[in-house]
Amino acid sequence: MSESPRSAPPKRMDDAVFELLYQKYATDVLRVSYFYLGDRQKAEDVTQDVFVKLLTSCPELEEGKEKAWLLKVAVNRCRDLWRASWVKRVVLGSPQLELIPDERAVDERLEKQELLKAVHSLPAQFREVILLHYYQGYGIAEISGMLDLPEGTISSRLSRGRKKLEEILKDGDA
């Protein structure tokens, strides 16, 4: 009789692979999550969830697509958290994006800060495509795969996101 798959011992990713992926991509996952949520503690929680999922679910990752998988899980988790906290945001207002610059970067660049805050203040559907495209450098086809949305939707969201950003920066609402 063949053994039921349920009785198989739980798999776990090889420690060396985990260490490598953590060293290479954890900071990116953390920063994208922070950029999305504007909450450092929650961004750490998301990063924790993403890497725990990586360790315990052992996904079959195509070589060179590891970061895309990590960011896909992170963005989905951020989206869940963002939706779940809408009551708090309505009552207390959206979290302010606090910049956490490297101590070595001393000269404050107001225009860049405004841009970052404006991106953070975009509605979530535009924010996530802007982050993945402009911050993390993914193409439309890749983002379409990551977010399970048609490429046309991604293009349209990028275009509308840019327009909204322009309005926000013009009005100084960031």
Binding site: Y22, A26, T27, V29, L30, R31, Y34, F35, R40, A43, T47, L99, I100, P101, D102, E103, R104, A105, R109, K112, Q113, L115, L116, V119, I130, Y134, Y135, Q136, G137, R162, L165
Partner: peptide, 19 residues
């Protein structure tokens, strides 16, 4: 054009945020 500068701006702004 402004958004092309986003990675650099974000890296400067979040440089203190490390895993």
């Amino acid at each position: 054009e402004k958004l092309q500068d986003l990675p650099r701006a974000a890296d400067e702004a979040f440089g203190g945020l490390q895993a």
